[in-house]
Amino acid sequence: MIRDVNKRGRSRRLKKVRVAVRVPGGGIVYHYRHKRHSQARCARCGRPLNATPTGPRSIMGKLSKSQRRPNRPYGGYLCPECLRELMLARAIEEGMALLASR
């Protein structure tokens, strides 16, 4: 007894995951669950970011801005190590320019 597949189209296809469930009658029924939100990743090295919770708007909307991402330049976008490397490179370049301009 496989029930007709859903008629809801995109609202199911994009957001739902199908789980096969055995039914007392012996058939299979599909249960639809929300997809889990993926974790925030560093834009440069792909490492998962700390201090960046993820979730549906119902949860994230309640969080204040500082609860959603670290209070640092590029917070929630770059991991601390990548930020340090980029800032270091920029500072060295600035140092060289200052030396050259003397």
Binding site: N71, R72, P73, P80, L83, R84, M87, L88, R90, A91, I92, E94, G95
Partner: peptide, 20 residues
Amino acid sequence: MGVIEVGRVCRKIAGREAGR
């Protein structure tokens, strides 16, 4: 690039004030 000593001007590269 200069050594860290009293009077040295630096860029902070980490933390809340990174880049300053």
